[in-house]
Simulated scan of single mutants.
Amino acid sequence: MCEVLSPLVPELGEAHAPRTQLDGRLLEAVGHVFGLGLRDVDVLTVDDMRYCDLATIEAGFLLFGSAFPLGGSSGIPHVICAHRSGEMTPGGEAFIRQQVAEGKAVLIELEALDESFVRRLVGDLDVPELAALSPRLAQFTGGNPQFLLETIRHLIEKDGLHTATGRLPLPPRVGEVLTRRLQGLSPSALQAARAAAVLQSDYSFDLVAEVLGAPLLAAANAWAELEAAHIMHEERCSHDLVYEAVEAGMPAAVQRLLHRRAARVLSGHRAPPGRVARHWLSGGDPGRAAPLLLEAAADAAATGRLREADDLYSLAVSALIATGDQEGAQRVQILQANLNMPGALQGELPPPPAV
């Protein structure tokens, strides 16, 4: 038996022994070892099945059939194969669908955890600082247990529990998973994901198609591919981690181009000037952003949102300096200083300066 198995396990044979061909005796020996390993086993679990190629999957079914032939006296153990949706090879996916269609297998798709379950899971970890982050963690990870635990681990390792006030970081292991998923997309689907990541809260299917300048039917096919890969769910990203992964892998030139295109599209849809301005800034055009930032700041100040107005005026100052308009920047700084005047709360600020 050892000599027969030596082509697969060299240490079982003699040193420097010639390699034999993979003949029927080897297959019979592998089947025998497989049967011994499953003796008295009730449930066999195969994890990370996505890493198996089609030949390995087919060989596994053949070995299983040889160990437990139909009509045999031994009971057949249950087999649970786990894999992430959208990450199987096309051949592996087709083989699984065939087994399901023939009644030989049942496909069970696990749903994401909702916010209440995320809160319970976070509570079970007994890390007090995590309690306040539960809603953000649920949105950020989309309720994916692996992504949730990896994000928490990353926050703890980087001591980010006390400083996680802005966007949560993309954990490296989750980034690797999402990057592989994105690499499997067609070019049109990848561009649709990039447009959605740039638009973020502003996006819808129609806006993504408009930003890309793509026909609706072509965009619909790309969208269907994103949903099949669990990148999108209905008309939104499946979780915020998708935004992070798409942005991390997007070339800077493409990102600037999409932001400028998004600014034009949103302007045509009468989007709030502050949102449009931020796209112009990200697109590398501070000159177009400055007047929109001033408009948004004046509106915020007039309605008593002074902190927001202050932030917008600061952005406008930076934008004007970037364009070389030092005088305009100084006028905006004076206007910004007037936010602390008593009349600011009653909307009595002077009009914004022309730029």
Rank of each mutant, 00 (worst) to 15 (best):
Pro10Ser: 06
Asp159Asn: 12
Gly284Cys: 08
Glu109Cys: 06
Leu178Lys: 06
Gly24His: 11
Ala195Met: 02
Leu335His: 05
Ala354Val: 05
Ala229Lys: 09
Ala197Trp: 03
Lys104Gln: 10
Glu157Met: 14
Gly283Leu: 04
Cys2Gln: 15
Leu312Asn: 01
Leu335Ile: 02
Pro135Cys: 01
Ala277Cys: 07
Glu102Leu: 09
Leu38Phe: 11
Leu63Gln: 12
Leu281His: 07
Trp280Lys: 00
Val177Ile: 15
Glu150Ser: 04
Glu210Phe: 07
Asp126Thr: 12
Leu125Asp: 04
Pro187Ala: 03
Ala218Glu: 14
Leu349Ser: 10
Asp40Pro: 08
Gly287Ala: 04
Ile108Trp: 15
Ala193Cys: 05
Gly175Glu: 04
Leu130Lys: 12
Leu148Cys: 05
Gly347Leu: 03
Ala94Arg: 13
Ala224Lys: 15
Ala220Ser: 10
Glu348Gln: 13
Arg181Ile: 01
Gly142Tyr: 04
Asp299Met: 08
His78Ile: 02
Pro77Ser: 09
Leu8Thr: 14
Leu107Gln: 14
Arg153Cys: 09
Ser186Tyr: 00
Arg236Trp: 13
Leu293Ile: 02
Leu170Lys: 02
Val122Glu: 07
Arg180His: 07
Asp114Gln: 00
Gln326Trp: 14
Val127Lys: 01
Gly31Lys: 10
Asn144Pro: 08
Asp310Thr: 06
Thr20Gln: 13
Asp285Gly: 02
Pro77Leu: 05
Thr323Arg: 09
Ile231Asp: 03
Ile156Phe: 04
Arg153Thr: 12
Pro69Asn: 04
Gly75Asn: 10
Pro215Asn: 08
Phe34Ile: 05
Ala112Asn: 08
Gly347Asn: 08
Leu257Asn: 15
Thr323Trp: 01
